[in-house]
Simulated scan of single mutants.
Amino acid sequence: MKVWKTVLATLVVSGLVIGLAAAGVVYSGAYNVGANAKHWPITHWVLTAAVHHSVEQHAADIKAPELGSEQQLLAGAANFDAMCSGCHEPPGAKPSVAAQGMYPRPPNLAHAGKEMSPGEIYWVIKNGIKASGMPAWGASHGDEEMWAMTAFIQQLPDMSKTDYDRLLMTAKADGIGHHDGESHEDGHGDAGHDDGDEHADGGHNENPSQSDSHDDAHAHG
């Protein structure tokens, strides 16, 4: 019994010391919250693991409808271009000026199309990611629109700039989805296309590799 009391007292004291130390860091302003300063490795690991497992858990029971129709892809492409391309570069484009200054960097969503299930992609689109630049589009868009963007993102790994431009032109001609120049409060802005680069990697942090951009989903879904 005496041993357990000693262990418990040690844990309590250790917890208090850690809590006071954390409070000291917070109130002293020592922690640099600037977007040009990298996370501490432990902070990066905790945030990455938390997002990965949270999305996986919350999306586990989501049943995706049939995806991939031409109408879905047209709506998804138009809405992606108007709402998302300011952060996530489309096929054949480099990261926007805004995305280059964000930390962690928003990922090229071609990675999400390969690595995430339709339910996980939909969940992130609908709910966003806390304390990041990824908004919860479910607050302003319906399920049909979000599933259309999910279907579009699934096609990104194999989509060329030519394919993307064709979808946008067809969607605009048919009046499908949001389009550049329209007035909509939830737009993210435009990303300039670069004909010389196919699938330019943005990454979700300073390293634009596929694994790092996926791991850094704590900033953008």
Rank of each mutant, 00 (worst) to 15 (best):
K2W: 11
V55I: 11
G113A: 02
K63V: 04
V97Y: 08
A37S: 05
E89I: 10
Y31G: 05
G92S: 00
A219Y: 12
P118S: 03
A82N: 11
E70T: 01
D174Y: 09
D165A: 07
D186H: 08
V13Q: 08
G196Y: 00
M83R: 09
A131Y: 15
K172I: 04
S132C: 08
P157V: 05
S85G: 06
L20A: 11
C84V: 09
I62L: 03
V25W: 05
G187R: 10
V3S: 07
A112K: 05
V3Q: 09
E206R: 13
P41K: 09
A139D: 04
S140A: 13
L47G: 09
D180N: 10
V55S: 01
G29F: 05
H58W: 07
Q57S: 09
E66C: 01
P90H: 11
V33P: 14
E89D: 13
K63E: 08
A219D: 10
V25N: 06
L67E: 00
W45H: 13
E70R: 12
D194V: 04
G203Y: 11
D174E: 14
K161Q: 09
T10W: 08
G221S: 00
S213A: 12
K161S: 04
A98D: 11
L11V: 13
D174R: 14
H88N: 02
K161I: 07
H141D: 01
H44M: 14
W4L: 15
W147F: 05
D212W: 14
I62S: 01
N36S: 11
N32H: 03
V26E: 11
G128D: 02
W147G: 00
Y103G: 12
L168T: 03
H39F: 15
H88W: 07
D81M: 11
H193M: 04
E66Y: 03
T43Y: 12
K172W: 03
H141Y: 06
G86S: 10
V124M: 04
A99M: 10
G34Q: 10
V46I: 15
P104T: 14
G202E: 13
Y164K: 02
W40L: 15
G68F: 01
E89L: 07
V51E: 13
Y164R: 06
V26G: 06
A59P: 04
E144M: 01
D163Y: 06
P95I: 08
V51Y: 10
L11E: 06
V51I: 15
S140T: 10
Q154C: 06
A9R: 15
S117P: 02
